[in-house]
Structures are given as structure tokens and as C-alpha cells.
């Protein structure tokens, strides 16, 4: 019988893990998941760009996108990433109260970002843009909606961890759980960095393509 290829090592939190790679299995899994999510979002972003300027009817991006509002929500998400990394840093140092405060700050900032998204979707529907209106609507709502779903999941996950930190079940010695949630949260942030650039900044001035009627509103 072949000898086991795994061995026991201590991870950076002092936790003994059985591994064949010398790395934390949990963290390896999370990075593999994030890698798959890169391809997932990459496909939707590529689809958005492939269908850019190909809508036959309005509203077009220039008719609906509001850069100042989205800039604020982008800033909120960036600051939530900062809050996340501070939360992890303080929990790793054993400064529980500060860590808990920053975890709940991430939850609040994430919820604010989601409210911005709800407002934006609602506003677009009032302007006549739905997922069924045109190619821009379909690709926009699918891409930003999937991102919003990721943010929602992250907010719920961090809420659980925040209460765990309050109760003392999340501590410096098992902060790997918070680190994994942090990796997920930062990933959601970098996806938004790309979406903000591609959809909002690069495509925001797109009007009706040649041959299509301009949008006159409802």
C-alpha cells in the first residue's frame, strides 16, 4: 500500500492542517473558486463588449447612465474593501472590538452599495430600460445583477462572521475564516473596478448606432 502523500503542517494561525501541498486547503479552495469566478465574470464582461453599440432601440447608455451617482457607489465599495482589510488586521492582532466594528462597517457599506444598485435599477426601469428592451439592457442587467448577487452573499456571510466575532467564536486563532470572506469581498470589489471602467466610463457616451433611431424617452 502506498504511503499517504499528505502531511501535517501548522498554518499561519497555528491551526494544524493535513495537506499535500503545504498550503491551507481552505485558502487554496477559495483561490481556485475565485479563479473560476474570474472566468465567469470575464465571459459576461466580454459579452457586454461584444454587444456594445448593437442595440437597435433605445434607451442607450448615454440616455440612462449616471456617472456621478455610480462614482459614489464605487467609492463606497472601495472603502468597504479598506474596512475589510482593517477588520482582518485587527482580528489577527486579537483586538476583538475594533475587528468587530470594522466587520460591521463592511456590512453597512456593502448594504449601502446594494441600495445604490436598487435605486439605479429602479431608475432605469422608469426610463424604459429593462433586460428585455435591447442588447444593452440584457447584458447590463445580467452583469451588474450577478455582481449584486455576489455582494448580497458577501454581506450575509460577513454578517454571520460579525455576530461570531461579537460572541467570541471568531478569534485570532481561527481568523482564517475571516480571511476567506475577505478574499471573496475584495474579489467582488475588483470585479466592480472592471465593471465601472468598462460599462460606466468607457461606454457611458454610447448613443444610437448608425441606422438606429435616437431614444426620445417614454
Amino acid at each position: 500500500m502506498a504511503a499517504s502523500a499528505t502531511y501535517e503542517v501548522k498554518n499561519e494561525y497555528g491551526e494544524v492542517i493535513n495537506t499535500s501541498t503545504g498550503l491551507s486547503n481552505k485558502k487554496l479552495l477559495m483561490w481556485a473558486f475565485l479563479g473560476s469566478d474570474v472566468m465567469f465574470f470575464g465571459s459576461f464582461i466580454a459579452t457586454f463588449l461584444v454587444y456594445r453599440n448593437r442595440s437597435l432601440v433605445g434607451p442607450y447608455p448615454a440616455d440612462v447612465l449616471d456617472i456621478p451617482i455610480t462614482s459614489v457607489s464605487t467609492f463606497v465599495l472601495l472603502m468597504s474593501s479598506l474596512a475589510m482589510v482593517l477588520a482582518l488586521s485587527y482580528i489577527q492582532q486579537g483586538r476583538q472590538k475594533l475587528g468587530t466594528f470594522w466587520i460591521f462597517s463592511v456590512v453597512v457599506l456593502g448594504a449601502i452599495f446594494l441600495l445604490f444598485q436598487v435605486y439605479e435599477f429602479n431608475h432605469f426601469v422608469h426610463l424604459g430600460l429593462t433586460p428585455r428592451t435591447n442588447l444593452f439592457g440584457t447584458t447590463f442587467f445580467i452583469l451588474t445583477g450577478l455582481h449584486g448577487a455576489h455582494v448580497t452573499l458577501g454581506v450575509l456571510w460577513l454578517m454571520f462572521l460579525g455576530f461570531g466575532s461579537l460572541k467570541g467564536t471568531l478569534r485570532a486563532d481561527n481568523a482564517i475564516d475571516l480571511e476567506l470572506a475577505g478574499l471573496y469581498w475584495h474579489f467582488v470589489d475588483i470585479v466592480w473596478i472592471v465593471i465601472f471602467t468598462v460599462i460606466y466610463l468607457i461606454s457611458a457616451r454610447d448613443v444610437a448606432p448608425p441606422g438606429s433611431p435616437p431614444f426620445v424617452g417614454h
Binding site: 498550503l23 487554496l28 472566468m39 465571459s43
Partner: peptide, 30 residues
């Protein structure tokens, strides 16, 4: 964000390899 907030700058190289490999595949698809 990836280098500092996600600690790839400080962390094990293997994680960076996984993420970079998937980025390359994602960009190739794109």
C-alpha cells in the same frame, strides 16, 4: 487591491499562480 488587500504580494506564490492562470484563460476567452 489584489496585491495588498488580498495579500498576494505577501502570500505564497502558488495562490498568485492559480489566480494569474485563470486570469490568462479569462482574458484569452475574452
Amino acid at each position: 487591491v489584489v496585491g495588498f488587500f488580498m495579500h498576494l504580494k505577501f502570500d505564497r506564490k502558488y495562490y498568485a499562480w492559480i489566480f494569474t492562470a485563470c486570469m490568462v484563460v479569462g482574458i484569452a476567452l475574452f
